[in-house]
C-alpha cells in the first residue's frame, strides 16, 4: 500500500521535542492524513511542550490545550458546539499520550466512546510518563525500567491492551499504527476521518530519551516492535471485525529488547518469558482476526 503524502505541511519546521522524538514524527503524519479542516485537543503530555510556548505554536491547525484527564470530554464539547454552529465538515481530534489515555484520561475516554461521540482520539504511545521524567504508566511494558520502577522493582505487570479495551466499547473504528510505517498510518488516519462516531488510533511512538536508545534508532526500534509482534498493526471495526495489516517477520523479542537501555537489567530467562507472553498475545490476535495478510 502506497499513500501519496500532500505537498503542504501542517507543522512548522520548528518544535521543542527531543532529538529522534517519535511523537513529533507521528504528529506530522497525522496532520498529513487529516488536512486543514481539523480542530485539535491536546491534554497534558509531551506535546503540551513540543507545540511551543505562548505566543508560538508549531501547529497550523487550531489547538485547545487542556487538563490531563479531559482529552475526550473536551473533544465531546467541541464536537457539540461545531454541530450547533453547522460546521459538520471539521474533524475534531484528541491527541494524547499514553498517560492521558491509558490512565488518568481513561474514564473520560470510556465515557465518550460509550456515547459514540463523533471524534477521532489518537494516542501517541511512548510507554511511560516521559514529559515528567520517565515514570511508569499502565502502558509501560513488562520488564521496563522507569524512574518509578528502578532497580529490582522493574515493572512486573503487562502493558494494558488499550485497543482491546476500546474495541470492547464496540466503537466504529480502532486501529494500531506505527511511525515506522507511514503509509499504513496515513491510510488509517484517512479512513478514520471518513467515519462518523468514535474512532481510536493507537500510534507506537518511540522515545529515545526514556527508552535509553540513540536518537537515530527511533524509527528502527518502532519497526522492530512491529516485526517482533510486540506491536502488531491491525484494525478492529465495530469492535468485532479484526484485520491484521502486516505480516511480521517474527523476529525474536530479545533483538528488540537488547537495543534499549530500559531493558538492560533483564536476564535471558526474563527474555524467554517475555517471548512466550508476546507469542501468546499474537496467537490471541490471530484467533480474533481469523486470517493473516499474505503480504
Amino acid at each position: 500500500m502506497k499513500v501519496e503524502l500532500p505537498d503542504h505541511e501542517l507543522m512548522h519546521s520548528g518544535h521543542v521535542g527531543c532529538p529522534g522524538c517519535g511523537a513529533a514524527v507521528a504528529m506530522r503524519f497525522l496532520l498529513n492524513g487529516l488536512g486543514e479542516k481539523t480542530v485539535m485537543v491536546i491534554p497534558a503530555c509531551c506535546w503540551s511542550i513540543i507545540a511551543g510556548p505562548y505566543p508560538q505554536s508549531t501547529l497550523k491547525v487550531p489547538v485547545l490545550h487542556t487538563a490531563f484527564e479531559t482529552g475526550a470530554a473536551v473533544a465531546t464539547g467541541i464536537r457539540a458546539a461545531l454541530d450547533v454552529r453547522g460546521e459538520r465538515d471539521v474533524t475534531v481530534v484528541t491527541w494524547a499520550g499514553d498517560g492521558g489515555t491509558f490512565d488518568i484520561g481513561f474514564q473520560a475516554l470510556s465515557g465518550a466512546v460509550e456515547r459514540n461521540e463523533d471524534f477521532l482520539y489518537v494516542c501517541y504511545d511512548n510507554e511511560a510518563y516521559m514529559n515528567t521524567g520517565i515514570q511508569r504508566s499502565s502502558s509501560t511494558p513488562y520488564g521496563a525500567w522507569t524512574t518509578t520502577t528502578p532497580g529490582r522493582d522493574w515493572k512486573k505487570m503487562r502493558k494494558k491492551n488499550i485497543v482491546e479495551a476500546l474495541a470492547a466499547h464496540r466503537i466504529p473504528y480502532a486501529a494500531t499504527a506505527s511511525i515506522a510505517y507511514p503509509d499504513d498510518l496515513v491510510a488509517k488516519v484517512k479512513k478514520a476521518r471518513s467515519i462518523r462516531g468514535s474512532r481510536f488510533i493507537h500510534i507506537f511512538s518511540s522515545c529515545p530519551t526514556g527508552w535509553r536508545i540513540p536518537s537515530e534508532l527511533s524509527i528502527k526500534i518502532a519497526r522492530m516492535a512491529v516485526q517482533t509482534n510486540i506491536f502488531p498493526l491491525y484494525e478492529v471495526e465495530g469492535g468485532v471485525r479484526y484485520t491484521i495489516n502486516l505480516k511480521p517477520k517474527g523476529y525474536l523479542v530479545k533483538e528488540y529488547f537488547r537495543l534499549q537501555g530500559r531493558f538492560s537489567h533483564l536476564t535471558e530467562e526474563d527474555l524467554d518469558q517475555i517471548q512466550e507472553m508476546v507469542e501468546e498475545d499474537w496467537e490471541l490476535l490471530l484467533r480474533k482476526a481469523g486470517t493473516m495478510p499474505s503480504l
Partner: peptide, 24 residues
Amino acid sequence: ARFLRVESEHSALAALIGASTAGV
C-alpha cells in the same frame, strides 16, 4: 440545544470548556 450526558462532573465542565472555546 445539545445536552451532553457525560460520565462525571469533571467531564461535564471539561466538555463545556471545549464547547465554550468553540463559540457557543
